[in-house]
Write a protein that binds this DNA or RNA. Sequence first.
DNA 1: CGATATAAGACTAAAAACATCTTATATATC
DNA 2: GATATATAAGATGTTTTTAGTCTTATATCG
Lengths: 154, 154
Amino acid sequence: MRLTRAGEYGIRCVQHLARHGKGTLVSRKEIAVRTDVPPHFLAKIAQQLARAGIIEIQQGANGGYRLLRDPSEITLLAVIEAIIGEISLNDCVGRPESCHNSPLCTVHRVWNKANQQLRATLQEADFATLAKEDPCCLTPFPETAGHNGPIGKK
Amino acid sequence: MRLTRAGEYGIRCVQHLARHGKGTLVSRKEIAVRTDVPPHFLAKIAQQLARAGIIEIQQGANGGYRLLRDPSEITLLAVIEAIIGEISLNDCVGRPESCHNSPLCTVHRVWNKANQQLRATLQEADFATLAKEDPCCLTPFPETAGHNGPIGKK
DNA sequence: CGATATAAGACTAAAAACATCTTATATATC
DNA sequence: GATATATAAGATGTTTTTAGTCTTATATCG
Ligand code: SF4
Ligand code: SF4
């Protein structure tokens, strides 16, 4: 297992959407800027989240992404695994057949246990709870706030 | 965090040495053959284990490796971290300064917790316990058994 | 000394991660 | 309907990491 950048970015994306609540449309640009993720990269990640049924993508002018479920129904585990696939600390955890020794291997059992524990911990964390303690103050985003002039940048 | 091949091989190496017990000299070749690890790769891994004080390397003819500690004193965690460095599930766990958001981030806290839990689980597993339930029957290795002719191969 | 074994690190190949770019398509607004 | 804007989809490119090999040097036994 390895939490890649894509995985981390996916979490940030859902986290930001969760701040706006279920169903609210948020532009890719806003998410990208606010969570510090390369916009084109975010597009890819969003597609994976959409395939997993976590978000919905709206195309066209004034398009963007929206959460399909309530933040309390979305876990860290679901978001991570939507992007990097099922967590597997060692090859033999996800594919026991990759090591002929796995049926007898006592180390294998430790990995299995650790893996299960890790997934459980990540499953316990839902985005409603995460947001509750989150001190993030959601200041208006330029585009959303109704004027187009750049603020600060340039 | 990511258990690399080197990490997995390191565990196999220590596991094999543990079967022979603390202090017993075992040739690199035997370990490599028995645990299915490329010999030159094993050399590298052994050096890391030696630096971490887990094994001792004996050079010269009839050289090899030996465990410095009792198997019960060696944990999975120690071996893994000797090779891949301290376990860190996400960048921000090992280096909080890598994300300016880490002091406030609620996701960060979940990672910290999960990381701590994982390390604890791997620390609980020592090689004496692992070997106890290990059904491996240690048949004599050709070189060790006192004759030099190749068996089976070629 | 000579045979054998590891040390140490350079080197290479392959894979994965990370990111960008291009072309196509969908939608709102005029 | 035309146009501008936003995402879709996937090809492409760059960089980093992993995995493994090779070469030269050194240590030890007999
Ligand atoms: S030796 Fe054990 S821990 Fe290692 S890959 Fe095989 S089954 Fe997994
Ligand atoms: S946003 Fe939170 S979880 Fe993600 S890298 Fe920063 S501190 Fe870690």
